[in-house]
Design a protein around this nucleic acid. Structure first.
Lengths: 94, 94
DNA sequence: ACTTTATTTAGATGATTATCTAAATATCTA
DNA sequence: TAGATATTTAGATAATCATCTAAATAAAGT
């Protein structure tokens, strides 16, 4: 969970996620949307990947990135938990 | 939005939010839950307050902190937007 | 094999951040 | 007003982070 929030704390990374919401993109296509260097974008991608917010598959010379909705849903769950009944148990849903 | 995500990127601050979910607490009561110094907790509180995730009212010598659900809901909305239909417009709901 | 294209890795640097101790401020009570 | 309690502000420091350029790796085409 910490890796997820850390990954989401950077505006460039959130924007990458928003781009990937529209469609899967190669690292180069992602980089085109920003004015920072490709190595920096690559670094951001590795942080997002490490947090499992995105996934990558090689396709020829390119590497295609896509969203992993599972982790996004889990994080959304954290916020839903925050809005439950006051004093409600966070974890145990039995 | 950036202040919110930045504020949520620290585990101590997320834990503070979880404590305040249970009930309103004074700065001192919050500090008791952690092994870091009171000035450090005060600093975390000011970041959360600056992000408008929490609010404070003075009550005698103490200052009582509480959650601001509005901003939490807004952030939850960001995640919901992330899970909408692929290609859906992010902002315009007309 | 060599060249081009796509991407990542390495190493460095400046900025931001979490933390600390010491000092300041604010409130209450005697 | 003096002393006690609650909290914040100031200033310092060590760690983390975003970014850069240069070099390395990987795949494809000639």
């Amino acid at each position: 969970m910490n890796d997820t929030f850390k990954a989401l704390s950077d505006p460039t990374r959130r924007q990458i996620i928003q781009l990937l919401k529209e469609r899967d993109l190669s690292a180069g296509e992602i980089a085109e949307h920003f004015s920072i260097s490709k190595p920096s974008i690559s670094h951001h991608l590795s942080i997002l990947k490490n947090a499992r917010l995105i996934e990558d598959v090689r396709q020829g010379q390119s590497i295609i990135y896509s969203l992993n909705m599972t982790v996004i849903q889990e994080t959304l769950g954290w916020f839903l938990g925050m809005m439950g009944t006051k004093g409600e148990d966070t974890h145990d849903k039995s």
